[in-house]
Amino acid sequence: MDSLLSSLFSLEKQELHILNCMAYFMMVMAACSFVALLFDKVPYGRYASSKYGFPVNVRFAWFVQELPAFLVPLCLVIWTSCAKTSLPPNQLLIAMFFCHYVQRSLIYPFLIRGGKPTPFISFVLAFVFCTYNGYMQIRYLSHYAEYPAHWVSHPCFITGSVLWLVGWLVNVHSDHILRNLRKSGETGYKIPTGGMFEYVSGANFLGEITEWAGFALAGHSAHSLAFATFTTVVLTSRAVAHHKWYLAKFENYPKNRKALIPFLF
Protein backbone atom coordinates (compact mmCIF):
# COMPACT_ATOMS: atom_id res chain seq x y z
CA MET A 1 0.00 0.00 0.00
CA ASP A 2 2.97 2.30 0.54
CA SER A 3 3.83 2.00 -3.15
CA LEU A 4 0.24 2.83 -4.12
CA LEU A 5 0.21 5.95 -1.96
CA SER A 6 3.64 6.93 -3.25
CA SER A 7 2.35 6.71 -6.81
CA LEU A 8 -0.55 8.99 -5.91
CA PHE A 9 1.44 11.51 -3.85
CA SER A 10 5.03 12.24 -4.80
CA LEU A 11 5.69 14.08 -1.54
CA GLU A 12 4.33 13.60 1.99
CA LYS A 13 3.56 17.32 2.11
CA GLN A 14 1.32 16.80 -0.90
CA GLU A 15 -0.66 14.03 0.81
CA LEU A 16 -0.98 16.08 4.00
CA HIS A 17 -2.29 18.98 1.92
CA ILE A 18 -4.87 16.64 0.36
CA LEU A 19 -5.92 15.36 3.78
CA ASN A 20 -6.38 18.93 4.98
CA CYS A 21 -8.43 19.76 1.88
CA MET A 22 -10.57 16.68 2.55
CA ALA A 23 -11.30 17.98 6.05
CA TYR A 24 -12.26 21.43 4.76
CA PHE A 25 -14.43 19.88 2.06
CA MET A 26 -16.25 17.83 4.70
CA MET A 27 -16.95 21.05 6.60
CA VAL A 28 -18.42 22.55 3.42
CA MET A 29 -20.55 19.43 2.93
CA ALA A 30 -21.75 19.73 6.54
CA ALA A 31 -22.94 23.27 5.79
CA CYS A 32 -24.65 22.12 2.56
CA SER A 33 -26.26 19.21 4.40
CA PHE A 34 -27.53 21.57 7.09
CA VAL A 35 -29.36 23.61 4.45
CA ALA A 36 -30.63 20.56 2.55
CA LEU A 37 -31.95 18.89 5.70
CA LEU A 38 -34.10 21.92 6.46
CA PHE A 39 -36.24 20.80 3.52
CA ASP A 40 -35.99 17.01 3.61
CA LYS A 41 -35.21 14.15 5.99
CA VAL A 42 -32.28 11.75 5.75
CA PRO A 43 -33.87 9.08 3.52
CA TYR A 44 -33.47 5.79 5.38
CA GLY A 45 -35.35 3.87 8.05
CA ARG A 46 -38.87 5.18 8.64
CA TYR A 47 -38.23 7.97 6.13
CA ALA A 48 -37.11 5.67 3.31
CA SER A 49 -38.53 6.56 -0.09
CA SER A 50 -38.51 4.88 -3.51
CA LYS A 51 -37.39 8.16 -5.09
CA TYR A 52 -33.92 7.47 -3.67
CA GLY A 53 -33.53 4.17 -5.51
CA PHE A 54 -34.45 0.54 -5.14
CA PRO A 55 -34.50 -0.95 -1.61
CA VAL A 56 -31.46 -2.74 -0.19
CA ASN A 57 -31.81 -5.25 2.63
CA VAL A 58 -31.18 -3.33 5.85
CA ARG A 59 -28.70 -5.81 7.37
CA PHE A 60 -26.73 -6.06 4.13
CA ALA A 61 -26.77 -2.28 3.72
CA TRP A 62 -25.51 -1.53 7.23
CA PHE A 63 -22.78 -4.18 7.00
CA VAL A 64 -21.45 -3.14 3.58
CA GLN A 65 -21.78 0.63 3.95
CA GLU A 66 -20.01 0.75 7.32
CA LEU A 67 -17.32 -1.84 6.50
CA PRO A 68 -14.94 0.58 4.68
CA ALA A 69 -14.63 2.63 7.88
CA PHE A 70 -13.08 -0.49 9.42
CA LEU A 71 -11.25 -2.09 6.48
CA VAL A 72 -9.61 1.04 5.02
CA PRO A 73 -8.10 2.06 8.39
CA LEU A 74 -7.05 -1.55 9.01
CA CYS A 75 -5.18 -1.66 5.71
CA LEU A 76 -3.53 1.69 6.44
CA VAL A 77 -2.33 0.55 9.86
CA ILE A 78 -1.12 -2.90 8.73
CA TRP A 79 0.25 -2.26 5.25
CA THR A 80 1.77 1.21 5.41
CA SER A 81 4.78 2.62 7.20
CA CYS A 82 2.91 4.28 10.05
CA ALA A 83 5.28 6.90 11.39
CA LYS A 84 3.09 7.89 14.33
CA THR A 85 1.38 4.73 15.57
CA SER A 86 4.00 4.15 18.27
CA LEU A 87 2.90 7.34 20.04
CA PRO A 88 0.31 6.97 22.85
CA PRO A 89 -2.08 9.80 21.74
CA ASN A 90 -2.21 8.47 18.19
CA GLN A 91 -2.69 4.91 19.40
CA LEU A 92 -5.58 5.85 21.68
CA LEU A 93 -7.35 7.96 19.05
CA ILE A 94 -7.00 5.21 16.46
CA ALA A 95 -8.35 2.73 19.03
CA MET A 96 -11.42 4.95 19.61
CA PHE A 97 -12.15 4.99 15.89
CA PHE A 98 -11.70 1.23 15.54
CA CYS A 99 -13.81 0.51 18.62
CA HIS A 100 -16.78 2.36 17.16
CA TYR A 101 -16.56 0.82 13.71
CA VAL A 102 -15.89 -2.74 14.85
CA GLN A 103 -19.16 -2.51 16.73
CA ARG A 104 -20.98 -0.63 13.97
CA SER A 105 -19.83 -2.75 11.02
CA LEU A 106 -19.17 -6.23 12.43
CA ILE A 107 -21.69 -6.49 15.28
CA TYR A 108 -24.58 -4.02 14.93
CA PRO A 109 -25.85 -5.15 11.48
CA PHE A 110 -26.33 -8.73 12.68
CA LEU A 111 -28.34 -7.63 15.70
CA ILE A 112 -30.92 -5.71 13.65
CA ARG A 113 -34.45 -7.05 14.05
CA GLY A 114 -36.69 -6.26 11.10
CA GLY A 115 -36.05 -2.76 9.86
CA LYS A 116 -37.05 -1.12 6.61
CA PRO A 117 -34.80 -1.58 3.56
CA THR A 118 -32.33 1.21 2.79
CA PRO A 119 -32.75 3.12 -0.50
CA PHE A 120 -29.86 2.45 -2.87
CA ILE A 121 -28.72 6.07 -3.09
CA SER A 122 -28.58 6.39 0.70
CA PHE A 123 -26.62 3.13 0.82
CA VAL A 124 -24.07 4.33 -1.76
CA LEU A 125 -23.63 7.73 -0.10
CA ALA A 126 -23.00 6.08 3.27
CA PHE A 127 -20.46 3.72 1.67
CA VAL A 128 -18.62 6.63 0.05
CA PHE A 129 -18.62 8.63 3.29
CA CYS A 130 -17.24 5.75 5.35
CA THR A 131 -14.47 5.14 2.80
CA TYR A 132 -13.59 8.83 2.61
CA ASN A 133 -13.68 9.44 6.35
CA GLY A 134 -11.93 6.19 7.26
CA TYR A 135 -8.99 7.12 5.05
CA MET A 136 -8.89 10.74 6.18
CA GLN A 137 -9.00 10.05 9.92
CA ILE A 138 -6.62 7.12 10.14
CA ARG A 139 -4.10 8.21 7.52
CA TYR A 140 -3.75 11.51 9.37
CA LEU A 141 -3.47 9.88 12.81
CA SER A 142 -1.14 7.07 11.74
CA HIS A 143 1.23 9.10 9.58
CA TYR A 144 1.00 12.85 10.23
CA ALA A 145 -0.61 13.83 13.53
CA GLU A 146 1.86 15.32 15.99
CA TYR A 147 0.93 16.10 19.59
CA PRO A 148 2.83 17.83 22.40
CA ALA A 149 4.70 15.71 24.89
CA HIS A 150 2.36 14.24 27.52
CA TRP A 151 -0.74 15.15 25.43
CA VAL A 152 -2.55 12.18 26.99
CA SER A 153 -2.50 14.00 30.34
CA HIS A 154 -3.76 17.29 28.87
CA PRO A 155 -7.28 18.31 30.01
CA CYS A 156 -8.47 18.41 26.40
CA PHE A 157 -7.41 14.82 25.78
CA ILE A 158 -8.75 13.53 29.10
CA THR A 159 -12.10 15.34 28.73
CA GLY A 160 -12.43 14.30 25.11
CA SER A 161 -11.67 10.66 25.91
CA VAL A 162 -14.26 10.61 28.70
CA LEU A 163 -16.85 12.18 26.40
CA TRP A 164 -16.04 9.60 23.73
CA LEU A 165 -16.49 6.72 26.19
CA VAL A 166 -19.73 8.09 27.63
CA GLY A 167 -21.09 8.71 24.14
CA TRP A 168 -20.14 5.24 22.95
CA LEU A 169 -21.85 3.61 25.94
CA VAL A 170 -25.01 5.72 25.47
CA ASN A 171 -25.08 4.89 21.76
CA VAL A 172 -24.69 1.13 22.26
CA HIS A 173 -27.18 1.03 25.16
CA SER A 174 -29.75 3.08 23.24
CA ASP A 175 -29.47 0.77 20.23
CA HIS A 176 -30.06 -2.16 22.60
CA ILE A 177 -33.23 -0.52 23.90
CA LEU A 178 -34.54 0.14 20.39
CA ARG A 179 -33.85 -3.45 19.27
CA ASN A 180 -35.81 -4.84 22.18
CA LEU A 181 -38.91 -2.64 21.98
CA ARG A 182 -40.90 -5.33 20.17
CA LYS A 183 -41.31 -8.88 21.34
CA SER A 184 -40.96 -11.74 18.87
CA GLY A 185 -43.77 -11.61 16.32
CA GLU A 186 -44.80 -8.04 17.13
CA THR A 187 -44.86 -5.32 14.50
CA GLY A 188 -45.29 -1.55 14.52
CA TYR A 189 -43.59 1.23 16.46
CA LYS A 190 -43.45 1.68 20.22
CA ILE A 191 -42.32 4.48 22.51
CA PRO A 192 -38.73 3.84 23.64
CA THR A 193 -38.15 4.06 27.39
CA GLY A 194 -35.19 3.65 29.70
CA GLY A 195 -31.67 5.04 29.64
CA MET A 196 -31.33 8.42 27.95
CA PHE A 197 -34.67 7.86 26.20
CA GLU A 198 -36.24 9.09 29.43
CA TYR A 199 -34.90 12.53 28.53
CA VAL A 200 -34.59 12.70 24.73
CA SER A 201 -36.17 11.09 21.67
CA GLY A 202 -32.80 10.73 19.92
CA ALA A 203 -30.79 9.05 22.65
CA ASN A 204 -28.81 6.94 20.19
CA PHE A 205 -28.02 10.05 18.14
CA LEU A 206 -27.01 11.99 21.25
CA GLY A 207 -24.61 9.18 22.12
CA GLU A 208 -22.93 9.21 18.71
CA ILE A 209 -22.71 13.00 18.57
CA THR A 210 -21.10 12.99 22.03
CA GLU A 211 -18.65 10.29 20.89
CA TRP A 212 -17.31 12.24 17.97
CA ALA A 213 -17.35 15.56 19.81
CA GLY A 214 -15.08 13.92 22.39
CA PHE A 215 -12.94 12.44 19.62
CA ALA A 216 -12.57 15.91 18.07
CA LEU A 217 -11.60 17.46 21.41
CA ALA A 218 -9.02 14.76 22.09
CA GLY A 219 -7.77 14.73 18.50
CA HIS A 220 -7.46 18.50 18.19
CA SER A 221 -7.36 18.50 14.37
CA ALA A 222 -9.36 19.85 11.45
CA HIS A 223 -9.99 16.24 10.40
CA SER A 224 -11.64 15.13 13.65
CA LEU A 225 -13.52 18.44 13.91
CA ALA A 226 -14.91 18.04 10.40
CA PHE A 227 -16.15 14.54 11.21
CA ALA A 228 -17.77 15.67 14.46
CA THR A 229 -19.43 18.63 12.71
CA PHE A 230 -20.81 16.55 9.85
CA THR A 231 -22.11 13.91 12.28
CA THR A 232 -23.76 16.56 14.45
CA VAL A 233 -25.55 18.15 11.49
CA VAL A 234 -26.95 14.89 10.11
CA LEU A 235 -27.91 13.29 13.41
CA THR A 236 -29.41 16.46 14.89
CA SER A 237 -31.72 16.65 11.87
CA ARG A 238 -32.68 13.01 12.36
CA ALA A 239 -33.29 13.44 16.10
CA VAL A 240 -35.60 16.41 15.49
CA ALA A 241 -37.49 14.49 12.80
CA HIS A 242 -37.90 11.50 15.13
CA HIS A 243 -39.14 13.72 17.94
CA LYS A 244 -41.79 15.34 15.74
CA TRP A 245 -42.81 11.93 14.40
CA TYR A 246 -43.22 10.47 17.89
CA LEU A 247 -45.30 13.44 19.05
CA ALA A 248 -47.58 13.13 16.01
CA LYS A 249 -47.98 9.35 16.25
CA PHE A 250 -48.45 8.83 20.00
CA GLU A 251 -50.94 10.90 21.99
CA ASN A 252 -49.36 9.70 25.22
CA TYR A 253 -45.80 10.56 24.20
CA PRO A 254 -43.98 12.18 27.18
CA LYS A 255 -44.40 15.93 26.78
CA ASN A 256 -41.32 16.76 28.87
CA ARG A 257 -39.02 14.70 26.64
CA LYS A 258 -36.78 16.77 24.36
CA ALA A 259 -35.45 15.94 20.90
CA LEU A 260 -31.71 15.74 21.54
CA ILE A 261 -30.40 17.71 24.53
CA PRO A 262 -31.96 16.86 27.93
CA PHE A 263 -34.17 19.66 29.33
CA LEU A 264 -33.10 22.10 26.60
CA PHE A 265 -33.71 21.01 22.99
Rank of each mutant, 00 (worst) to 15 (best):
P89M: 00
P109S: 14
Y135S: 01
L111R: 12
Y135F: 14
Q91R: 08
F98K: 04
Q91V: 13
P109W: 12
L125Y: 13
C130K: 00
Y101H: 07
F98T: 02
T118F: 05
C130I: 01
Y135G: 00
I138L: 12
C99L: 12
T118M: 15
I138Q: 04
Y108F: 15
L106C: 11
H143Y: 04
Y140V: 03
C130N: 15
S105H: 03
V128L: 15
T118R: 01
R104P: 08
L106W: 13
F98R: 05
S122K: 06
N133S: 12
H143C: 12
I112P: 01
T118E: 09
Q91Y: 11
V124I: 15
Y132I: 11
T131W: 09
T131D: 07
H143S: 10
L111A: 11
K116A: 15
S122W: 09
V124D: 01
R104G: 11
Q137A: 08
M136C: 08
F120H: 07
F98Q: 04
L141Q: 05
L141F: 12
S142H: 04
C130P: 02
Q137F: 07
V102M: 09
M96I: 08
F120P: 07
M136H: 02
S105V: 04
I121R: 01
P117Q: 02
L125W: 01
L106H: 11
I107L: 14
G115C: 11
I121P: 08
V128R: 00
H143W: 03
S105L: 07
G114N: 13
I121S: 04
M136S: 07
T118K: 04
M136K: 05
I94V: 11
F98G: 02
R104L: 11
